[in-house]
C-alpha cells in the first residue's frame, strides 16, 4: 500500500521537522562552539538536555532533585582540584573565585531546589532553578574532566568526553531512575499559520531557537567575552599571549553549552518523553548537523541540523522502520564531499 501524501500531511511533516530541527540546531551550534574554542567534541551535550527535563519534572512532582547532589559533589571535587593546583603553583590567586563558582553557587542552588520549591511555586521559578543548576554544572564539569588535559590532542579530549558521557549517564540512572518523564506544557493551545493548525508549543520552540541563535550571534560579535572566546578559537596560544585565560574560556564555553542544553531540555520536555539516557541520541543528531558544517561553521551547522530534522520527519512517514538508518547514512556522503572538497587542516602545531 503506497503512502498518501497530501498538502496537509506535508505541512504537518514540515512542522514536525522544523520543531525537532530547531532543537538539533541548538545542539549543533553548541557542539560547534565548544569544539572551536576547546577542541572538545562534547559528547555529553545531550546529558544537559536530559538532566534539565528530568530535574524540571522532578520539581513539578515535588521530588527532591537528584541533580542538586551531583552539582554539590562535583563542585567540591572541582574546588579541591583548584586548591591543589594553587598549592603546586604556590599562589592563591583565583581561589576566592573558585570558592564562589564551585562551592557557594552549587550550595545555594541546591538549597533553593531542595527547600525553596513547593507545590505553589510558579512554573517559571522552577524552570529558572533547573536552568541555573544545569548551567552551574557546565564549568564544574570542564574543570574536573577537561581542564587538567586542555592541551592534549583532540583525540584524547574526545575519549575524555566519551568517558564523561558514560559517567553522567550512570549518574543519571542513579539520580533519576530508569523511567521516563514528561513536563507540563509551557503554553497550551494551538493557532493557525497558513490555514494550518500549529501548536503554540511548536512556535515557542522555533522562537526560542531563533532567539538563542541571535543572542549567541550578538554575544560573539559584540561583547568582549564573546570576542575572547573567538580569539581562543582562532588561535589558543595567541589568545593566551594577549591575556585571554584558556581555562576561563573553557569554563565559559561549557557554561554556555550547558545553558543551551538546559533550554533545549525545558523546550522539548512537554512534547516528548525523556529518559536518563535520551540525551545521547539527541546530541548525536545535533552532531550530524554539526558535521555538515564541518564542526566549524555556525550557519552550515544550523542548516545541517534543520536538514536532519526534516529528513527525520519525512523518513518516519515514508519508511518508519528505516528512519535512523536514513538519518545516519546522511553523514557518509557529507563526509565524502567534505574530505574531497577541502584540504585537511591539522590542529594548531605549537
Amino acid at each position: 500500500m503506497g503512502p498518501i501524501m497530501d498538502l496537509t500531511i506535508f505541512g504537518f511533516l514540515v512542522q514536525d521537522g522544523l520543531t525537532t530541527g530547531a532543537v538539533y540546531i541548538l545542539l549543533a551550534v553548541s557542539l560547534v562552539m565548544v569544539f572551536t574554542v576547546t577542541r572538545i567534541v562534547l559528547v555529553p551535550q545531550g546529558e544537559f538536555v536530559a538532566f534539565a527535563t528530568l530535574t524540571l519534572a522532578g520539581l513539578e512532582r515535588g521530588d527532591a532533585p537528584g541533580l542538586a547532589w551531583l552539582l554539590v559533589a562535583a563542585g567540591v571535587l572541582a574546588f579541591v582540584m583548584d586548591l591543589s593546583a594553587a598549592r603546586r603553583r604556590g599562589s592563591r590567586r583565583g581561589i576566592a573565585a573558585a570558592a564562589v563558582l564551585f562551592l557557594a553557587v552549587p550550595a545555594v542552588l541546591a538549597a533553593v531546589a531542595l527547600y525553596g520549591i513547593g507545590a505553589s511555586t510558579p512554573l517559571a521559578a522552577k524552570i529558572a532553578v533547573t536552568c541555573a543548576m544545569v548551567v552551574a554544572l557546565g564549568p564544574i564539569l570542564y574543570r574536573v574532566a577537561f581542564q587538567p588535559m586542555a592541551a592534549a590532542s583532540p583525540l584524547y579530549l574526545l575519549i575524555a568526553a566519551i568517558a564523561l558521557h558514560f559517567v553522567l549517564v550512570g549518574a543519571g540512572l542513579y539520580l533519576f531512575g530508569p523511567e521516563g518523564v514528561r513536563t507540563s506544557p509551557l503554553l497550551d493551545g494551538s493557532t493557525e499559520v497558513l490555514s494550518m493548525p500549529v501548536s503554540v508549543q511548536t512556535l515557542l520552540i522555533l522562537a526560542a531557537s531563533l532567539g538563542l541563535n541571535l543572542a549567541l550571534f550578538a554575544f560573539f560579535g559584540f561583547t568582549l567575552q564573546g570576542k575572547a572566546l573567538r580569539a581562543t578559537a582562532v588561535n589558543r596560544r595567541g589568545a593566551e599571549l594577549v591575556g585571554v585565560s584558556a581555562d576561563y574560556a573553557g569554563q565559559l564555553t561549557f557554561a554556555l553549552a550547558a545553558a543551551i542544553g538546559a533550554l533545549s531540555g525545558v523546550l522539548i520536555g512537554p512534547v516528548t518523553t525523556i529518559y536518563y539516557d535520551s540525551g545521547f541520541l539527541l546530541g548525536l543528531k545535533g552532531f550530524v548537523g554539526a558535521i555538515i558544517g564541518g564542526l566549524a561553521a555556525y550557519p552550515a551547522a544550523a542548516v545541517g541540523a534543520l536538514l536532519v530534522g526534516l529528513l527525520e520527519a519525512f523518513s518516519s512517514f515514508w519508511a518508519s522502520a528505516y528512519k535512523e538508518v536514513i538519518v545516519f547514512t546522511l553523514i557518509v556522503p557529507v563526509l565524502l564531499w567534505r574530505s574531497l572538497a577541502h584540504v585537511a587542516v591539522e590542529e594548531d602545531h605549537d
Binding site: 500500500m1 504537518f12 511533516l13 514536525d16 520543531t19 535520551s278 518516519s316 512517514f317 528512519k323
Partner: peptide, 24 residues
C-alpha cells in the same frame, strides 16, 4: 491492517508515523 509502522524506544517524535496511521 491498513498501516503498519515502526518507531524507536528512544524517538522524540513520531509525527510521521502518526500521520500515516491517521491518513489510512
Amino acid at each position: 491492517i491498513v498501516a503498519s509502522e515502526r518507531y524507536q524506544r528512544t524517538d522524540t517524535s513520531v509525527t510521521g508515523q502518526t500521520l500515516k496511521l491517521i491518513s489510512a
